[in-house]
């Protein structure tokens, strides 16, 4: 889908992107990872052919510099924050982009409906919340049903719920066979969406790798060991199993597998049964033995 060869972009004496090369197959998804100023946004702009650069880039075999207009017809672009005339109403913005992307008004309405913005057509862009703006950007990106979606930190201005929605949508798109390129600051997004990660540092590709390799310790599930105030392990294990946790009794406390961001849940579950937890231990590098409760 994408072939990038030696993309180099300089702003005066500063080199923002330095001979970046990669290829991306149809249906694959690539995350761009790096600190602010590492060149993620610039690289995306180069790939889109929005700014001039040295090197070559093509989308679906179409050179973005020579035939950028036709190359971009294969791309839906979602910026960090939708920047469009604030005074424009949602319907007219949609109609404009539908015109540019040769989508019918019916398609535009379907796109809006798909991101849950039906009924907001009379609202002005400035009155939309951050999440709604990103959904509008998605709706616009998907107008002509392009095979490639390019996103530049699409969730960085959103709250947790908004992020969840966007990630959910992108996952659905990935499953539907779309190719994705996105820049992100959040490992969980990268882990849940990307097949590959380009790690950028000062414009250079430091590593071309996978999320699993990049975060070998980062597993979605962690094991914690609970030390109880009194010897009621059996009751506690029963209670936790009923609450849906995988439990392992190994004689030294109670080992529970929990989602990485839900480590306190077993404690509150036990508190409901008036079982007091004295201490907890997070067990890194401990693999949970396969036990059936």
């Amino acid at each position: 889908m994408i072939t990038a060869t030696n993309i180099t972009k300089k702003f005066g004496r500063i080199t923002a992107v330095s001979s970046v090369s990669f290829e991306l197959a149809d249906g694959a998804s690539l995350a761009l990872w790096g600190s602010n100023g590492a060149g993620k946004t610039t690289l995306i702009r180069c790939i889109l052919g929005v700014c001039r650069f040295q090197g070559r880039a093509s989308i679906g075999g179409i050179d973005v510099r020579r035939r950028g207009r036709h190359a971009r017809a294969l791309v839906g672009y979602v910026p960090q924050e939708l920047a469009f005339h604030d005074d424009a109403r949602l319907a007219s913005a949609m109609a404009f982009f539908a015109g540019l992307r040769r989508a019918t008004p019916a398609t535009a309405a379907r796109s809006l409906a798909a991101v849950g913005l039906t009924g907001h057509e009379r609202k002005r862009v400035r009155d939309l919340s951050g999440g709604m703006k990103q959904r509008l950007a998605l709706a616009i990106a998907l107008l002509s049903d392009p095979p490639l979606i390019v996103l530049d930190e699409p969730t960085s201005n959103l709250d947790a719920a908004g992020r969840g929605e966007v990630v959910h949508t992108l996952r659905a798109l990935k499953q539907a066979g779309k190719t994705l390129i996105f820049a992100s600051h959040r490992p969980d997004e990268v882990i849940s969406l990307a097949d590959r990660v380009l790690v950028l540092e000062r414009g250079r590709v430091e590593r071309d790798t996978t999320p699993a390799e990049l975060w070998p310790t980062e597993k979605p599930v962690q094991v914690i060991r609970l030390h109880l105030a009194m010897a009621r392990e059996e009751d506690a294990a029963e209670a936790l199993r009923r609450a849906g946790h995988a439990v392992h009794l190994n004689g030294d406390g109670l080992c529970v597998a929990v989602a990485r961001d839900r480590k306190a849940e077993p404690i509150s579950a036990l508190a409901l049964h008036r079982i007091e937890v004295r201490d907890i231990e997070v067990l890194d590098d401990v693999r949970f033995p396969e036990v059936q409760p």
Binding site: R69, H70, R72, A73, L74, G99, L100, R101, R102, A103, R110, A114, L142, S144, D145, P146, P147, A176, G177, K178
Partner: peptide, 11 residues
């Protein structure tokens, strides 16, 4: 939404 392989060409 059915995903088509090729998007609409540029205007």
């Amino acid at each position: 939404t059915p995903i088509t392989v090729h998007a609409a060409p540029a205007r």
